[in-house]
């Protein structure tokens, strides 16, 4: 009986210790994703049944919430996406109105890629949105990773269940699988290249596959990335979007 009690107490202590670990892992992972400011030039290679095409863009970020994407490739030139705290706005150079995306429109594909506008939403602390469980330590393409399972606390998230493999050493995402509420796999994300920038390991080439579509893949590559640079706060305003 005493032996059993000791085992239970030991197990409880173990769970608490693991819980702390999970928080620390997720915090380190989240921290790795965010810079005070950043400006990157990126290419998005979209492969689908209609062929391949490359979309070029400049991405500005400020903190967790503000993102401005400006397309520079010829076909989309001048189009912009602004993500602020809670909203996503689209700017088209030939339209006099700005589009505020909401509801089902957020599920639309971003320039025909495997990324949806919904994927750009977020910004809240992961622990506030998801219950997170530590699954195991696993090797992914030669890297030791923590395998974590995220289950959403509410329904207002794009992916109610997510499985993440976070590098045990650099806390960069190595792989993730995104699921629907029913547990159906929706997307797979893989980090193909990383770079050390300002002391943080950043994924600079990522593959995204929407498994619900046939023969598609999107590869997002940062060709350059500057961080913690001086950016005007107004860059992320609606006024600036149409300027």
């Amino acid at each position: 009986m005493r032996k059993l009690l000791v085992l239970i107490v030991a197990a409880m202590v173990g769970i608490a210790a693991f819980g702390q670990d999970v928080d620390a892992i997720v915090d380190a992972y989240s921290e790795n994703l965010v810079f005070e400011t950043s400006r990157g030039e990126a290419e998005m290679l979209v492969k689908n049944q209609y062929g391949e095409r490359t979309i070029r863009m400049i991405i500005h970020t400020m903190g967790k919430a503000d993102v401005l994407v400006e397309y520079t490739s010829r076909a989309e030139q001048g189009q912009k996406i602004l993500r602020s705290e809670n909203d996503i706005y689209l700017y088209y150079p030939d339209a006099s109105e700005i589009v505020r995306l909401q509801g089902a429109a957020l599920r639309q594909s971003l320039q025909g890629s495997d990324v949806s506008y919904e994927d750009l939403t977020g910004g809240k602390k992961l622990q506030d949105t998801y219950d997170i469980d530590y699954i195991s330590m696993e090797g992914v393409e030669g890297f030791d990773t923590h395998r974590l399972m995220f289950v959403a606390k509410s329904r207002d998230v794009p992916y109610p269940r997510q499985e993440l493999w976070i590098d045990a050493e650099t806390y960069v995402l190595r792989k993730s699988k995104l699921y629907s509420l029913s547990g159906r796999l929706i997307k797979e994300v893989k980090t193909l290249e990383t770079r050390l920038i300002a002391g943080k390991t950043v994924a600079t080439k990522v593959s995204i596959v929407d498994v619900l579509k046939k023969d598609t893949e999107t590869v997002l590559t940062y060709t350059s990335l500057e961080v913690d640079i001086e950016l005007d706060r107004n860059l992320f305003s609606l006024e600036e979007l149409t300027f």
């Binding site: 209609y50 095409r53 339209a95 589009v99 639309q108 594909s109 320039q111 025909g112």
Partner: peptide
């Protein structure tokens, strides 16, 4: 008057015009 139309493109992306 003016009207703004949101359309799909051949790249399965979107575009708008007024």
């Amino acid at each position: 008057d003016t009207i703004t139309a949101l359309s799909g493109t051949v790249y399965r992306s979107s575009n708008a015009m007024t």
